[in-house]
Design a protein around this nucleic acid. Structure first.
Length: 569
RNA sequence: CGGGGCGUGGCUCAGCUUGGCUAGAGCGCUUGGUUUGGGACCAAGAAGCCGAAGGUUCAAAUCCUUCCGCCCCGACCA
């Protein structure tokens, strides 16, 4: 491709709309342009990268025996009512009413559609296992699109679905996809970490996320630099403290007037203590029954852990009315002392706490020196909170780190969650009917690009890993008026083309400085620099973008040398 | 959805506090010339109903009201 013919608008300045590095660089290097919040056009250079990534994905998926399909984006809303996800996905779904007054959704994901398809076509164990995948645009009306293509409302996803007769089969399919993902991300040149993950609205029990550490990530993962243990933040286990020894010299429980002091910070401030001496009491509603949940003042309740412990996925935080009914006190003054007719469940971290401050269950009052066992009874101890960076690794007990990351892939063992809703069953060799076991596997294709840039850039621009670079080499004849330079450049360009090496020829009639700056910005791994003086000595220069390494070689040998380099860099 | 910021040629921004003459700069673009290894220089140009609507005023980019859009923080989130 000749640059002068290419629609490749680069920007010198940092666009007003972008803050994250990958976002800034994607716009500056002419990969994408924004249409509206969370909606982007891909320009030729951006599309080339996208296609490279998609091809890697296709190769690895096909290698595992997955078959490509293309499922519809327009889906009747009833399908979503059937699986119960109309509610769970809620506002995130893009809906429209057609001329027949029927409501449709633009697919945010395709479990429903694919399950229905398979239910209708598969009825025997002989047709299993089956893995189907597609690469297609998904729509989600995100509450807050962010960081360019990292969280957008319209994005490209590779989604795959496995169907198996047995749980061993599901495990095998899951492992195949897991391995394919590692292969794909490695080939894309990403440093990634697979972590155990929460299943969220997808359902199922086992799940792994593939994370790329990046400053502008929206997710958090917990990593142990000692033993390498890594988990998603939501799932990270907090270790139960050893022992449960309350000394005998506990202080006396007493009430203190605390007018209008409700928040943890305010209470800590009022008593001039650290928030960790407080116990937060939250009233939840579980299976229509209220339950009191206690965590330390400086900790956050992790609702998905709570749901698991209580085996209740419909759990929700109680409203003001419920709190008043249960505690007989107003919101902000709840405490465990004197609560009756309600189960109390407490976080492990409170086990070794003593003489804490708690709400008095009446307006404008708190209790000091409250102690579990003596002043209130805990019905169940459990791990109920989010991990913090002061916690220790559950595997090796060293200090952990919490780091921001971008989720580029997620795999789930769904089991029968969808096949039950859609009654998708098969007959086994004995003629017995069973539900099909499913797995689902997603990759955020656009995110791979953003994540790659987050991970591979410098102050001058992008540095593409070789397999997803839009071109293999960039040829820069510096002086547009110097015929010998131009001729040499064109010759190299043509010869590379014959060898199936993709080159971009910067034949623009602009000054050298502009070519150099743009070259570094768009980040093609190998730059072939053809200058008038050096060419006079029969030499051209090669610059490796990632290392900044420069070498001079004889113009006559350039094509061989470049071919060699393309294989290496 | 809550909090904050912003909206002025294609891009980055000044002007707005304290209303006033013809709305500015740099980059980019067009034409001509000089230049040619890290975002050149000179000259001449094209390009804006100052986000939209309404109001106040002799007079509004500037003040007031409403709306729209974009970005950031949070809530939420395969």
């Amino acid at each position: 491709m000749r640059w002068s013919q290419m629609f490749l608008p680069t920007l010198k300045e940092i666009p007003n709309e972008a803050e994250a590095v990958s976002h800034i660089l994607m716009i500056r290097s002419g990969l994408v342009r924004k249409l509206t919040a969370g909606v982007y056009s891909y320009l030729p250079l951006g599309l080339k990268v996208l296609q490279k990534v998609e091809n890697i994905i296709r190769e690895e998926m096909n290698r595992k025996g997955a078959q490509e399909v293309l499922l519809p984006a327009i889906q009747p809303v009833e399908l979503w009512g059937k699986s119960g996800r109309l509610k769970t996905l809620g506002e995130d779904m893009v809906k429209f009413t057609d001329r027949h007054k029927k409501i449709n959704v633009l697919g945010p994901t395709h479990e429903e559609v694919v399950t229905l398809l398979v239910k209708n076509e598969v009825s025997s164990y002989r047709q299993l296992p089956l893995i189907l995948y597609q690469i297609q645009t998904k729509f989600r009306d995100e509450a807050r699109p962010r960081f360019g293509v990292i969280r957008s409302r319209e994005f490209i996803m590779k989604d795959a679905y496995s169907f198996d007769a047995t749980s061993e089969g599901l495990n095998f399919s899951y492992q195949k996809m897991y391995d394919a993902y590692c292969q794909i991300f490695s080939r894309c040149g990403l440093k990634f970490i697979p972590v155990e993950a929460d299943t969220g609205v997808m359902g199922g029990d086992v799940s792994h996320e593939f994370m790329v550490l990046a400053e502008n990530g929206e997710d958090k993962i917990v990593v142990c630099s000692q033993c390498g243990y890594a988990v998603s933040f939501a799932r990270a286990e907090c270790v139960e403290p050893k022992g449960n020894n309350k000394p005998a010299d506990l202080k006396k429980l007493s009430e203190v007037k605390t007018p209008k002091v409700t928040s943890v910070e305010a209470v800590a401030d009022f008593f001039k203590i650290k928030p960790d001496k407080l116990i937060k009491t939250m009233i939840y509603e579980s299976d229509a029954k209220p339950i009191a949940v206690l965590v330390r003042g400086d900790h956050e309740i992790n609702e998905s852990k709570l749901k698991k412990v209580l085996k209740d996925s419909s759990l929700k935080l109680g409203d003001e009315k419920l709190i008043e009914k249960i505690t007989k006190g107003p919101l902000g003054f709840s405490g465990p002392v004197g609560l009756s007719g309600i189960e109390i469940i407490a976080d492990y971290a409170l086990k070794n706490e003593r003489d804490n401050v708690v709400g008095a269950n009446k307006a404008d009052a708190h209790l000091i020196n409250a102690n579990s066992g003596r002043d209130f009874k805990v019905d169940l101890w459990a791990d109920l909170r989010n991990i913090t960076d002061r916690d220790f690794c559950p595997k090796c007990a060293r200090q952990i780190k919490i780091q921001p990351a971008i989720e580029i892939g997620h795999v789930f063992k769904l089991g029968t969650k969808y096949t039950t809703s859609f009654n998708a069953a098969y007959l086994d060799a004995e003629g017995r009917s069973s539900e099909i076991l499913m797995g689902c596997y997603g990759i955020g294709v656009n995110r791979i690009i953003a994540a790659s840039i987050e991970q591979n850039h410098d102050e001058n621009g992008i540095i593409w890993p070789k397999h997803i670079s839009p071109f293999d080499v960039l040829i820069l004849p510096l002086n547009p008026d110097h015929t010998a330079s131009q001729d040499t450049a064109v010759k190299i360009y043509e010869q590379l083309k014959e060898r199936n090496i993709e080159a971009l020829l910067d034949d623009r009639n602009v000054r050298a400085g502009i070519k150099f700056k743009d070259a570094d910005l768009i980040g093609i791994p190998i730059q072939i620099i053809i200058g008038e003086k050096k060419l006079g000595q029969g030499k051209i220069e090669i610059k490796v973008r990632s290392t900044n390494e420069r070498m001079e070689i004889a113009a006559s040998e350039s094509v061989n040398k470049i071919t060699e380099l393309v294989g290496e860099v």
